[in-house]
């Protein structure tokens, strides 16, 4: 990864150009051509460093979401994690160091649809699902400063 990659990753996390040719606008700011920006973003996406160029929505502005947790018996973790991940409404799913060892985020077009997914997971795993919907959010999302130094 060179300086140009780093600038692409760090300087365009917000206010991506809303013009017909946004990558050309990015290229102009970086002093390269559009094809170079597209090539680099494609490579960074293939490498997994870039998830996407897109939108982060304010929670609950469109649809519903919640953070949920399960206390999974350790020898069942693999199977149940795969089951949870198989829902298209589950967009994050992590093992964490706690008795409640599987944590996932459910996002769906409505609060009812979120609850339906939780109920389905509870029924299929025979585990209690801890439902921790957002009450208040505090962070102003300016992206993630990669602090390269």
């Amino acid at each position: 990864m060179d300086t140009l990659d780093r600038r692409l990753l760090n300087e365009f996390q917000q206010d991506f150009p809303l013009v017909a040719r946004p990558y050309a606008a990015v290229a102009e700011r970086l002093g390269v051509d559009e094809a170079e920006v597209l090539d680099r973003l494609a490579r960074l996406s293939r490498g997994g460093m870039v998830s996407r160029v897109g939108a982060v929505f304010r929670p609950h502005a469109v649809g519903g979401s919640t953070l949920a947790a399960l206390a999974v018996p350790p020898d069942e973790l693999e199977r149940i994690a795969a089951l949870v991940s198989s829902y298209c409404e589950v967009n994050h799913n992590y093992q964490r160091e706690h008795r409640l060892n599987l944590w996932f985020v459910v996002t769906a077009p409505s609060a009812e649809a979120v609850q339906a997914v939780l109920a389905d997971i509870a029924a299929r795993t025979d585990l209690d699902v801890l439902d921790l919907p957002l009450v208040e959010h505090f962070h102003i999302d300016l992206g993630f400063d990669l602090k390269w130094s």
Partner: peptide, 24 residues
């Protein structure tokens, strides 16, 4: 307080807010 380190990532994608028919 408690600190829950993540030990494994099973899934990480963008949120699917849209209607399923439109999103897929």
């Amino acid at each position: 307080h408690a600190v829950l380190f993540s030990t494994r990532r099973f899934k990480q994608t963008g949120a699917r807010y849209g209607r399923r028919s439109a999103a897929e």
